[in-house]
Amino acid sequence: MDNYMKLEIPGKSQNEAFARVTVAAFAAQADPTIDEISDVKTAVSEAVTNAIIHGYENGPGNICITASLTGRRLEITVVDYGVGIEDIEQARQPLFTSKPELERSGMGFTIMENFMDEFSVESKPGQGTTVRMVKIFDGPPERNKA
């Protein structure tokens, strides 16, 4: 049951919920558990929020989200064409934030890393950022539960 989706949205905060719910609805066909789908929603929300706040600094710009399913393996990319990240290692540190004045918790990358099975970031200053994440649905399929 291999499948694929692509979504392009402007970087507006009201699209955060739309993006995570869309990816979750797509992923539902692989019968994830409730916890697994919750992890995916949170990770997508973090990546999209980062693109809006950091990538585009709350200005205009589009975000491309792709998701592909190979069996019960879900791969997601979230791409922006914004300012990029100068120091990815620093950005990945728990509690690090470049925008403390906005009350950012600095936990976005840490959450993506912990909630997903694979996580990587590629970025070029001035060109944008690509986040790639994989979730393997290895819990018992919901529909087979008693």
């Binding site: 929603k41 949170t42 929300s45 973090e46 906005l102 950012r104 918790s105 600095g106 936990m107």
Partner: peptide, 13 residues
């Protein structure tokens, strides 16, 4: 039913 790190930042603030 859903909270991400933005919610966390608000609570910590």
């Amino acid at each position: 039913d859903f909270m991400d790190s933005s919610g966390l930042g608000m609570v910590l603030g």
